[in-house]
């Protein structure tokens, strides 16, 4: 039976393989967002005609509301995990529902902002103010990738909630999806100041 020894090795970090897996994804995804933000920084420094598209009202105000919504959703998913770990299934499901609602609200606010900007003539390859088109390119690519993460998160939380209600998933699954959701929140902590506040007129 010596050949089975490696299979029975305990986790080197004392975490479940599920948690180790999501952390490996988070590290890789953090590098992806960092690369995008670095590229944005490079373009920003290197371009002489960089335009600042955002005024305090309504763009930055909308961004502040989005930030508060996302931060609050991190709190509600923690409440869901704590309730699940305490065996309070109904409460956990309610908190998961609240997290999904807040995530959907964030996505709706973001899409509304995109629609207004597109209405004003902003495109990934066009700047209506006459400066470099890279402003739109970096804005739509960075916020678009983040928005994709938010929408994916809302769907995955829904799938996990459904499975948890049916007894297919356990509190550990909620913790794993919670880690992903906190990561999405953490990325926004850099996107909001660097992409929005640094571009306020």
């Amino acid at each position: 039976m010596a050949e089975l020894t490696a299979v029975r090795e305990p986790s080197p970090f004392g975490v479940t393989s599920r948690k180790l897996g999501i952390w490996m994804f988070i590290v890789a995804d953090a590098a992806t967002f960092a690369a995008l933000l670095f590229a944005y920084g490079y373009e920003r420094v290197a371009n002489p005609d960089w335009t600042r598209p955002f005024s305090f009202w309504p763009s930055i105000t909308n961004g502040i509301v989005m930030t508060v919504v996302l931060l609050t959703s991190s709190l509600t998913i923690i409440a869901a995990v704590l309730a699940a770990q305490a065996g309070r299934k109904t409460s956990a499901l309610r908190w998961l529902g609240a997290t999904m609602l807040l995530g959907a609200l964030f996505a709706a606010l973001h899409l509304r902002e995109w629609i207004v900007m597109i209405g004003d003539g902003w495109r990934p390859f066009r700047n209506p103010l006459g400066g470099t088109p890279l402003v739109g390119a970096t804005f739509f690519s960075i916020t678009g990738l983040h928005l994709l993460h938010v929408v994916t998160g809302v769907v995955v939380i829904g799938v996990i909630a459904l499975g948890y209600r049916r007894g297919r998933f356990e509190p550990g699954h909620l913790e794993t999806v919670g880690l992903y959701w906190h990561f999405v929140d953490l990325v926004w902590m850099f996107v909001f100041p660097l992409v929005y506040l640094m571009n306020m007129r």
């Binding site: 923690i78 906190h182 953490l186 100041p193 506040l197």
Partner: peptide, 23 residues
Amino acid sequence: LLMLAFIEAALGLLYFMHLKYER
């Protein structure tokens, strides 16, 4: 802004993502 964002990230990682309580 970067300094404040890193403080936010540290708080999120240590408490919300429980890194403080891992090995």
